[in-house]
Amino acid sequence: MHESILCVILYISMACPGERILALTEYIHAVNLSFSYQNEPEAPQVLKDVSLSVEKGSFVAVLGHNGSGKSTLAKHMNVILLPSGGSLFVNGMDTSLEEHLWEIRQQVGMVFQNPDNQLVATVVEEDVAFAPENMGVPPEEIRRRVEEALRTVGMWDFRDHAPHRLSGGQKQRIAIAGVLAMHPDCIVLDEPTAMLDPRGRREVLETIHRLNRESGMTVILITHYMDEAAQADRVVVMDSGTVIADGTPKEVFSQVELIRSAGLDVPQTTDLVHWLRTEKGLDLPADCLTVEEAADAVAKLFS
């Protein structure tokens, strides 16, 4: 039985190589993932039995308050942390097997919260070249990749600037370019906009949405900004180390009480419609997210 299945899989993968890619649309796959920082049995579990799949090419926002486990989950995705229980697969590779370590780290790039902590060089283009240099990419190819990455994030004109003189949003875009120069399949961003002003936030968000749309990059955005999550294909809400909601932004944000119980905000628009539904008993769609949707729904009450 077992062998026959293997044979069939082998047959499919040989006969139609494209099938393999189709079968692996689950790019990141967590199976009963648990994690605690200490080895003792009573140590607090930061992640409890998390099972989650992220499709290749999707844009997933992971929401949660501080301490909900969202960053810990993110750090498993490029093997900064290893599961205490369960497994995590990246593109079919088990992260706990050391032979996959470098492959996974090149395929999944990470961007962190503080723009000042992740730039290493004194010139922008040297900073972007850092990862491909370490990977042993030939110099000519490095030049090509650095230009491509800097153009993608709209920072090519700043290539010979000093990173410390740039704005926070610009620094984060350099950090993203540094990841892009590795040619990853997936980029995981851990609260990349938390320290930025509104303009910097917009720059970074536009950049990652464009990457997702135009290059098919899988994007996992860890955030506690609802408006950022509302723009994702899918929203995963974490609380106390577990996934408490998972769906489209409309599906998730319409569960106002659940979101609040997780220490998060709902957008003012959703809040208003929710109040009209629950306090005033009015028949309105629960999934109003944008200003237009909320205004249209309320306006209908008066028509």
Partner: peptide, 16 residues
């Protein structure tokens, strides 16, 4: 401006 203000701008513009 706050999202809630934007909603009220639209409502007022719609004659509510």
């Amino acid at each position: 401006i706050p999202a809630i203000t934007q909603v009220f701008h639209r409502l007022a513009a719609a004659g509510i």
